[in-house]
């Protein structure tokens, strides 16, 4: 998870990966999840964090989390076998 911890994330959602040189844009919810993942939070804690910070209306937060983690794996920001547990 070192790659994730090394990411520089700005308040505007600009992300720089010093390992690959790649840059990204994240929205506020994704920024929140990245912060949580860096701190090693588990699935239920991440879902609770999102539900606490944002006004939700019945979305499947757990499924959205998996979708984001799929992108992170694709970009090599988390190991290929990584799953939120």
């Amino acid at each position: 998870m070192q790659r994730l911890r090394d990411l520089a994330i700005s308040d505007t959602g600009f992300v720089f990966d010093p390992f690959s040189g790649a840059t990204y844009t994240v929205n506020d919810t994704a920024r929140c999840v990245l912060d949580g993942l860096k701190r090693g939070l588990h699935r239920d804690e991440l879902v609770a964090l999102l539900a606490d910070r944002f006004e939700t209306s019945g979305e499947d937060l757990s499924r959205d989390l998996d979708d984001l983690v799929h992108s992170l794996r694709l970009f090599g920001l988390v190991p290929g076998a990584f799953e939120v547990v």
Binding site: T23, V26, T29, V33, F54, E55, L65
Partner: peptide
């Protein structure tokens, strides 16, 4: 203060030639 509305978390990679948020 009211909380911001939830939206699906997304990370988008920047690609030269496709970096135009407008």
């Amino acid at each position: 203060m009211s909380r911001p509305l939830y939206e699906r978390p997304v990370i988008a990679r920047h690609q030269t030639g496709a970096m135009n948020k407008f």
